[in-house]
Design a protein around this nucleic acid. Structure first.
Lengths: 160, 160
DNA sequence: ACTATTTGATTAACATGTTAAATAAAACCA
DNA sequence: TGGTTTTATTTAACATGTTAATCAAATAGT
């Protein structure tokens, strides 16, 4: 009998079976559900960002700096949810595009302090209204209450 | 007056201000909240997967094949939430590791049909109980009801 | 049958993700 | 003070993400 190409399970019930030894079905897997939701949401924003020659990571970095002002690299990486090596590479390209400015921390020579330029503020001013519009469309079709509930649960799962 | 390094906003209220032209504060931004939640959850699984020389994408591909049986590349990429070019590269490495087998679709010469090997089933049998344990710990600390609510909302936002 | 179009998969090029190692400056401490 | 440890950042190496281009096979339309 050939088992090599048979599915592990035959149905799609939402919980693991009694023996507990098979993988959680992907339909109700939290990591996959989070990824799918993220992809679905970002798909609505990406084309708009692309128009402005921005990817999502760059947009996160720029807007975090816009909100917080000057930050050191570690703090920025933390808040923008990018890894330090990624940020190092992004800094080079954003500096070339004159969207950020760098300076050394005089109190702590290890730290690089990063801030955005007026050009980046201009970019934020252009992107923000479009972003907000997309967000509001999403809120309208998803529901404001569900959006709030979802954000609360997402915040809670981070703390769990 | 220096404005180049001043924050765009001084507070962290959860909604955009009346003029509506500034970026949604990252705290209550759905894309960022989804990313943060995903990072937080995956951080619990990654070390376990690393023990088995698996990254999350490979684990998604293997378990999808384990559940569904043989799939063509497009269907697999779709279900495992990886892009086609990524899957192409992953296939090479997974084939080298003898975790998957490939064959041409005889009805449609364009399609590559992919299935997992017994070795991959063995791997799934090793990883699944550990994965389930981590998942149950998360459920315990997050709450089963909230988990269900969150999964429902994530499913809903994909459809929105 | 023949061409044009569509589709499945791969390749290319560049960006970020991920882990480990290297580097330099700061903090610690005997 | 001098040596060790910690911390901030960068580099390296390899994997995946992303978009566009390419290629081959199937389909559609004439």
């Amino acid at each position: 009998m050939v088992i090599g190409s048979d599915p592990l399970v035959g149905d799609n019930s939402s919980s693991a079976s009694a023996d507990g030894a098979q993988p959680r079905l992907t339909r109700r897997s939290l990591p996959i559900a989070l990824l799918r939701a993220r992809e679905s949401v970002m798909a609505k924003f990406r084309p708009m960002l692309a128009k402005h020659d921005m990817n999502e990571q760059q947009w996160r970095v720029i807007r975090i700096l816009g909100e917080a002002g000057e930050l050191d690299a570690t703090e920025l990486a933390d808040r923008a949810l990018v890894l330090a090596p990624s940020l190092t590479r992004m800094i080079k390209s954003l500096k070339t595009r004159k969207l950020i400015a760098l300076r050394k921390d005089k109190q702590d020579g290890r730290r690089t302090l990063i801030s955005i330029t007026p050009a980046a503020r201009q970019l934020i001013a252009e992107i923000s209204p479009e972003s907000l519009q997309i967000y509001r469309d999403l809120e309208r079709s998803f529901g404001v209450e569900d959006m709030e509930r979802l954000l609360d649960l997402l915040e809670a799962v981070v703390k769990a």
